[in-house]
Design a protein around this nucleic acid. Structure first.
Lengths: 230, 230
DNA sequence: CACTATGGTCAACGGTGTTGGCATAAGCTG
DNA sequence: CAGCTTATGCCAACACCGTTGACCATAGTG
């Protein structure tokens, strides 16, 4: 039987580890984020995290049921950073744009962490706040409940999906990343116009376009689609 | 030093394993796809694959440099299935919709495999063909090169990003999947209306909406946005 | 038939998440 | 301040994982 995990609020005894540091959910998540940044998305392991915190790996199971629950907590921390200090302006289009860009930016700022968490529903406080914010903007804009839910789903999933995609390419090991960029400049540029006329024609533009995120453009198109429905 | 891998074409000796089966790259990829479907995205391991093929795990290194190269081969197989037999109809909107749905469907049909491969840019024949097709549709529809490139980028990344996101949630291990669904039915439904009025109001709709893919709706919104620019 | 080198096998290494049992000290009670 | 309880950190172990190097049986070549 797994050990019971005490919720962070009702944690009263803060016994320090052998080396003197006092653990907490927040400290563990922050350390995990740092490790992800330094060692890549596969670099977060219970043993390494224990090493970084100077505690036994099994101690982590007093705070999280397993590595999976830890990644959920990491994801919620990112979401919390995304919307910290935001408040609605009343202009639905500007508000949705801001929310989307903020979430996308927060995740892409921690690509290795984003790769692990973007596709998960955490159900934790910060995620709930974000969902509530988006739904509020849409309802205030005049959408009915049913349509607001549809647009909300498309909007939030598109944001998270692009965040995951962009994060994945940012999180690639340096060697693979370099070879990817090389490909846009070599493979695509020397394409025979006979077999791929449109690619050949667009090659110069593609070389500069494809190394940036398509999220802003995709977001703008989606907002235009939403506006067309109002 | 790793063992050299003999290309599939120049393979001459087909020595059978102890149990009598003769290995090949194709047989290994097919078996891997079946294992992924049956055991989940974490269920593909060298040892288990060896067990299924009735050969020693280390034998796989005669065919692939490692598990990573094997996953790339799997991804290539998926991309080949996506656009097989497709040809443009002349209606740009219908064509983009079809291309998007086909790619999305091909990946989501093998979610456990897709989750391992979606973030990789291969630059191989099938990927080039898809890019050429999308650009061709947009140019024929009347977009200039520059705008076609922008829309193409948003469209193709939206498709891949949603494919990755949807595949990831479909491919979650049973335990995690169950906890994600639990989240929608328990946490979200008992939310205090005081702190999250819009979520509480939409909870019943969300419970049914969030378990399906938002890609069709997001694709429609994007297409409406594109149409508004024509 | 003899030779060669392909490719299957075996054993081992260092890594992983996770668990049950144990010991110690933090904070409550008096 | 003393004593108790139990939360919580630590330890050892388990069953996996990918990968490698050495070994050797044998299919195909000449």
């Amino acid at each position: 039987m797994p050990k019971p995990v005490v919720p962070e609020q009702s944690r009263r005894r803060r016994r320090p580890t052998r080396s003197g540091t006092v653990l907490s959910e927040q400290l563990i998540v922050e350390t995990a984020l740092r490790m992800l940044r330094e060692h890549g998305s596969t670099g977060l392991t219970a043993r390494r995290l224990g090493l970084a915190l100077d505690c036994d790996p099994s101690t982590l199971y007093r705070y999280f049921r397993g590595m999976d629950e830890l990644t959920l907590a990491i994801g919620d921390t990112l979401m919390g950073q995304a919307l910290r200090g935001w408040s609605p302006s009343g202009d639905w289009r500007a508000d949705l744009r801001t929310i989307g860009v903020r979430i996308h930016r927060a995740y892409v700022a921690h690509p290795q962490a984003a790769v692990l968490t973007t596709s998960r529903v955490t159900g934790r406080a910060n995620e709930l706040a974000a969902d509530e914010a988006v739904l509020g903007v849409l309802r205030t804009a005049g959408f009915g409940v049913r349509e607001a839910v549809t647009v909300y789903h498309a909007f939030i999933d598109q944001t998270l999906a692009f965040a995951a995609l962009d994060a994945a390419s940012l999180a690639l090991p340096n060697a693979a990343l370099h070879s990817d960029e090389e490909m846009w400049h070599s493979t695509y540029r020397r394409l025979p116009a006979a077999t791929h006329p449109h690619l050949a024609e667009a090659a110069p533009l593609l070389a500069t376009e494809m190394v940036t995120s398509a999220y802003p453009a995709a977001l703008e198109l989606l907002l235009e689609g939403v506006a067309a429905r109002l």
